[in-house]
Design a protein around this nucleic acid. Sequence first.
DNA 1: CAATCATTCAATTAAATAATTGAATGATAG
DNA 2: CTATCATTCAATTATTTAATTGAATGATTG
Lengths: 225, 225
Amino acid sequence: MSSENAKKALFTQFATVAKSLGHAHRLELLEFVAQGERSVDSLAERAGLSFANTSQHLRQLRRAGLLSSRQDGKRVLYRLADDSVLDLLAELRRVAERNVAEVKQIVDGYFHERDALEPVSREELLERMRQGLVTVIDVRPEDEYRAGHLPGALNITLRDLEVRLAELPGDQEIVAYCRGAYCVLSFEAVAALRAYGFNVRRLEEGFPEWRVAGLPVETNSVRNS
Amino acid sequence: MSSENAKKALFTQFATVAKSLGHAHRLELLEFVAQGERSVDSLAERAGLSFANTSQHLRQLRRAGLLSSRQDGKRVLYRLADDSVLDLLAELRRVAERNVAEVKQIVDGYFHERDALEPVSREELLERMRQGLVTVIDVRPEDEYRAGHLPGALNITLRDLEVRLAELPGDQEIVAYCRGAYCVLSFEAVAALRAYGFNVRRLEEGFPEWRVAGLPVETNSVRNS
DNA sequence: CAATCATTCAATTAAATAATTGAATGATAG
DNA sequence: CTATCATTCAATTATTTAATTGAATGATTG
């Protein structure tokens, strides 16, 4: 292989990786998988895609090196190949936020409008958790919560929110988080709880970012109060 | 716009950015543009693409927010929209290097084989430059050199190499660099100079990475000796 | 070991992208 | 103000990708 061919082959491989990120459905699937190992059918359901279509997209992501999979009984479980995939996704978001006018519009016009207060940074939240000054709620579905969550976080989905208000403190700050920077669940939760008069803010990013930052994580203990 | 729609619109935008990186020609064009502002025809020539095709690819990169352009006389000059684009490209390379078997093969089998010695890191090179212990050569074409280069670097292209050997020190280490981690020019230069007995290594990455790291850069002074 | 279940594969159709050609634009130079 | 030059645009063709359907695989359960 000549130098030129080696370089071309490399660039073709890089392009394959980039191409695998080049579809909204695949980006959404990656967001789901980033919460923890998941089967094809649960991903299909969550993304609202057909089964076979989901399988194809996942296969493409696996071939590009972004996902890996293993057989578990009769299911196939997919997970991120590597935490560097999260860094790549974060960088992709960052470039789009800085350079794409439409993204700025959507973020300013929709996400900011819905959350007038500054979101809480990871470091700030960690500090407040240590001081016992905050109640953390995880608004993702229960299976994602079980696969890993912030230490001591309550798992309260949007659907349960109204009937579980009694579990929330009226006098302490509440911080809600979900899957990532643009996961809408925590925005909705914040809006709903503010309407009830709670003092609540969003965590800036989601669970995967918290985990790769090396911050403490808890698994498999379901807390209900 | 509902939450779901806003999220979907965002992911579609992110996918557009990723898609624009999803072609080897566009990645190569980005590598060239990263050296400095360039006109469409010079990019077309360097990439070995037709004029119109190059223009289309550049337009796509501009629409995705990775490039911007300005008119200069009758030429249109393209440049990176932002230094964060380089971070995104670096992250793409990193993920591919870690997770794609073919990439590992090419890198180990071709690039490493051609350069048995450890490449020099930016920090190490900077230190040696300060101590005057090293001669730095920039093996890119002269126009890229003129748009910016390492302080004091000699511009010696592969073609000129043999007739300019006298300018190189026999007793001091030489470090060669070019456009980036997989730019083949510096590999070739190192191989050629080693054959002549020079003590020469490659800089790990290229000029753009040096610049965005905030290290000193020199422009427009052509040094010939 | 037959039935079931989760997933993948293969074949099809629809849609998007890439490259080429030639015409259109828009700036500059004579 | 016409000719020239660099670039973009529009139209075409070829190629690739996406989604759907139904069949095939391969592990598990009774």
